[in-house]
Amino acid sequence: MYLKQLTVFLENREGRLDNVTDVLAKNNINIVCLSLADTSEYGVIRMIVSDPEKAKAVLKEAGCLARLTDVLAISMEQKAGSLNRLTKIITEEGINIEYMYTLNSSREAGSMIIKCSDIDKGYEAVKKANLTLVDPETAYAM
């Protein structure tokens, strides 16, 4: 029910991102989407990939610091107010959104990845509001 997000620590210097994408490419792992949070000295790259467990293992082998984090993926209509509907529900339940980014977006529909302060509560809130969660396997295969 939760997606496994691949999180990798990157020093903010030349070639570090290239190193990560290179390892993933060589192991035939697709990056479905990503979000990069950066500071002046290092960055944290968050990704949804086709095979998170394998991705973590091969990156670790290559000397990278990688971990898997549980996140929620939520489908929403491609129209004004969709995101607002989601954030309202989360706020009402007293849950904090640590970060969010786009999983997928097309003319007809979109989906977001969100990391909540409490994922179980977040899950319940989304269910209660009748929002559709994206199935992990579907997300990995996007």
């Binding site: 999180t7 984090t69 990391k115």
Partner: peptide, 10 residues
Amino acid sequence: VDENVFSDEI
């Protein structure tokens, strides 16, 4: 940084 302290949150 190692796995014990690495977080996905900045």
